[in-house]
Write a protein that binds this DNA or RNA. Structure first.
Lengths: 189, 189
DNA sequence: GTAATTTGCCTAAAGCTTGTAGGCAAATCA
DNA sequence: TGATTTGCCTACAAGCTTTAGGCAAATTAC
């Protein structure tokens, strides 16, 4: 019996490809075994269970996103930085829909702590330096930006904006304009 | 063999309760049969298949949400209307997490057309009457509001805002303030 | 009120998924 | 070359989905 050379890492990377091809929901231990032409039980030496596999996919996606986000934000500020960060998320979701879905998986506290999650919020916080918001408004703004980016991408990819003009790219551009304007004129009650 | 009196409607309503209790993902034909103390195959006379059941749950949730939204918006305008609409979505998600998740199900075109989806976007559009935006900005704003509401609720419920002060109610209030300010000073390039 | 028809829930069975236990052979190490 | 570790295997149990066909309860007709 020839050995295929399975490793946790190869499984996770193949799982990510599979997710992008057929959707995160369809990533199963069975499907992954099929892809390596190997029996299902063989995977359980490398991955604890289905949940473990999905968590690893989420961590991979969060990590990839954090790297790209850091690169995009570096050396930019103000609206340029804002747009760069938003585009990273949106482009990643379009290019890797399965991975992006994986990144939304609800992680248990330990996994969340070990994830790139904190780097993401700090990236957003870094952008806000250009807008000079005092605390706690800065935290509110971080959450608002996260909401808009994530909500927009989810609705756009879910077809929520289909069936109506104008096209979504224009709305995205105007959304970034709107966020920039909002941050520059942040309301203080 | 006593008959339980299954109907499609009772199944869907029970499915909605089940979804709120254990999560939309855990709503299965099996679990529903168990809840009625009936054999699994019996459900297939009332529901085409698992997908059909989930679609019906989504339509129920969209309908309930549309009714509540219409009621909340009626007789209000401006920021009051904006907050009322946002609160309907957010409160519904907190009270009926499973149903809210169901409402996010991607529907096939026919189901989408028969859904309350259009009423939702028209409700948002109605709110914008108080802000006097010209087309196509109005459409952009509809999409932006949808993104913020949906994104915020998803992140809040997914625990994305946990582990950090201040509390989410405050951020929500400030988010509504920010959206109101943004719509009153909508940037035109 | 009884007979005929419809309808509701049943048993049975196949196929797919997750997960565990134990085994044999290939790779690695002494 | 022999001993040990490791990788993928077979076998099996249990849960979910879906279809086919059957019997009995409810409904309708006479």
């Amino acid at each position: 019996m020839a050995r295929v050379g399975l490793t946790t890492d190869r499984l996770v990377r193949a799982g990510a490809e599979l997710a992008d091809e057929v959707g995160f929901e369809q990533v199963t231990v069975s499907a992954l075994a099929r892809r390596f032409d190997v029996k299902v039980a063989s995977l359980y030496s490398h991955v604890k269970n289905s949940q473990d596999l999905k968590t690893r996919l989420a961590l991979l996606a969060l990590e990839e996103l954090a790297v790209q986000a850091a690169d995009a934000v570096a050396g930019r500020s103000g609206k340029e930085a804002l747009a760069a960060l938003g585009n990273v998320y949106r482009d990643y979701a379009h290019e890797h829909p399965g991975r992006y879905a994986a990144a939304q998986l609800r992680l248990d506290p330990e996994a969340a702590a070990a994830s790139a999650g904190r780097r993401h919020s700090q990236m957003t916080r870094a952008i806000l330096r250009g807008y000079d918001l005092p605390e706690p408004d800065q935290t509110h703004a971080v959450r608002l930006l996260g909401s808009v980016f994530h909500g927009y991408i989810t609705l756009e990819m879910g077809g929520g904006f289909s069936h109506s003009a104008p096209d979504t790219q224009e709305t995205w551009d105007r959304t970034l304009d709107a966020l920039d304007a909002l941050l520059r004129n942040w309301p203080t009650p």
